[in-house]
Computed example of a mutant assay.
Amino acid sequence: MNVWKAAFFSLAGLVAAALVVLIILIGGTTASSPLPEDTAKQDEGYTLALNTTKKNFEGIANTYIRKAVKGSLPVELEMRDDVLLTSELTVFSYTLPLAMHFDPIVREDGNLILKQSSMELGDLNIPPSTVLKLLKNSVELPSWMIVRPKEEEIFIDLEDLPISGDVQVKAKEVNLAQDEIILEVLIPKN
């Protein structure tokens, strides 16, 4: 056998093995991070109800996301009839646009769960859980955003938002169809 043939088949075998290992690493499901316990205690304080619109909430959310991500990757949140999270992922030196659609769910403790309804990653057909796993592993997200690939959701811990003082924020209602978002702000007594 020719030396060049042997080298070619060896190289082809190494490339195939690397692809198999990459597919196993990306496709394997890992345990999702546990959600924080409902530790919200009703401190004595003053409660302020905030009614806001999708546009205002979008601006506030993007401000916190930009501060937390610190320009490492462009992540934008857009409020429509659903919540749209856009970014880009680099795979094999190709930058692919990423658009994930979520339905917001308000938990009893006032935190938000963004349940994934659909996603687009360039022209690729990849399961949503895999895209969330890639997002979790490639982007350093703030501690108040917990990506849970297995459940196809992102948990937003409003209690962990970096707000000055001991101010706590809770979501009361998110009605995107009616353009109504109600937040509750608790300002503790000193």
Rank of each mutant, 00 (worst) to 15 (best):
A61T: 02
T53P: 01
S87T: 02
V83T: 01
M119K: 10
I60D: 09
E108K: 06
Q116A: 06
P36V: 03
Y64G: 10
Q42V: 10
K115Y: 12
H101G: 08
E108D: 07
T90Y: 03
G28M: 11
G110S: 07
F102C: 01
D82P: 08
F92L: 13
I65K: 05
Y46E: 14
S87I: 04
D109E: 05
A68L: 04
D82R: 07
Q42E: 14
L114D: 07
T52P: 00
M100W: 07
L114E: 02
Y64M: 11
A68H: 04
K55C: 04
T95K: 08
A49N: 15
L48T: 11
N51Y: 14
K115W: 06
Y94A: 13
A31I: 09
V106L: 06
D103I: 12
L48M: 09
E37Y: 15
E108V: 04
T63W: 07
L84T: 00
G59F: 05
T52R: 00
E76T: 03
S93K: 14
T30M: 13
A68I: 07
E76N: 09
L77P: 00
L89T: 00
F92Y: 12
H101S: 15
V75E: 00
L98V: 05
K55W: 05
E120P: 08
G59M: 11
I113N: 03
R80N: 11
S87C: 04
R80S: 13
N125H: 14
R80F: 03
L96M: 01
A49T: 15
S93T: 09
